[in-house]
Design a protein around this nucleic acid. Structure first.
Lengths: 154, 154
DNA sequence: GTTTGACAGTTCTATTTTAGAACTATAGCC
DNA sequence: GGCTATAGTTCTAAAATAGAACTGTCAAAC
């Protein structure tokens, strides 16, 4: 599998991994969800090298996940803002945070707690079926080939 | 941020990325969910190099996501089976597949369709609040520091 | 009017990871 | 004894990442 054309594979997981499947991208996006928008902000909170940060931000803009918006004219400065496509990554990040909370925790408890403003309570994210609303479990899902599948690729 | 101790960071996202945040791990796990269990099976369906596959399987066993179970005594051969910890990664993979379906699709339609055996319908995974059952949106979530957080790390 | 500092990058070398191919080892079958 | 299947290991080359230093613009301080 060639890494640079992974986004053209007939597999939605591969296509997503092409965008967020590296060491840093999801951590950068976490900062975006925590309202960080500027180069120096990402750099100082993540300790990522400036070179890599620059590359990743370009890639995220190229894929339409962030947009680069000017916030100062002289000198020209830009900040990076989540698009709707980027906001839609939220369930991925929350699913990963929840798995980490459940399986990678230590004796000190959770690093972060999440409050649902709508109901006012601390919550966990739960994945349910869009049709019946029941909790999803891998063993209750059957996979069919769809129209976009070619050959023996998942 | 040091990649080899990422699983000790006071951040559940970092800890999860330490386990599944590389080029291949999630693709290997996708195959596990599609009932692949053996070295040659992973290798031929993913086109991953044998060296990397071997490394990744060892890592997944080390983290308790797969267990290595003998299926033949002479010669000794093993297969790799998802543990509960591994099965719990399902929402992450489904969230990524769903995002890929939504934002990275082409004109041919979805590569795979998912049927919920419980209700018999084709579905999409939806993330909801464990407390009120409403759909989650990033803007309706407020983040608090939890007991396991130290310093200014998310 | 020169210096300092903030911000947003770019450029360079060194190290680590990954890719690609070939090789090893065990055992069954002909 | 030779062929095949399975599950790896070992090697070199290429690519990605780490780490540090450098560039350019402008505002404010001296």
């Amino acid at each position: 599998m060639k890494w640079d054309t992974l986004d053209e594979e007939p597999c939605s997981l591969s296509r997503t991994i092409a965008v967020v499947g590296d060491r840093w991208t999801l951590l950068i996006l976490r900062e975006c969800f925590l309202r960080v928008r500027r180069f120096e902000g990402f750099q100082s909170s993540l300790q990522i090298t400036r070179h890599l940060l620059s590359e990743r931000l370009k890639k995220l803009v190229r894929f339409g996940i962030l947009r680069r918006a000017p916030y100062s004219e002289a000198p020209k400065r830009y900040e990076y803002i989540l698009t709707q496509k980027g906001l839609d990554l939220y369930p991925i990040i929350m699913a990963m945070v929840h798995w980490g909370d459940t399986h990678m925790g230590d004796e000190r408890g959770r690093p972060l707690l999440h409050e649902h403003k709508t109901c006012g309570k601390l919550f966990d994210p739960v994945m349910v079926c869009s049709e019946c609303g029941e909790r999803l479990h891998a063993k209750q899902v059957h996979v069919h080939a769809g129209p976009g599948r070619r050959q023996a690729v998942g």
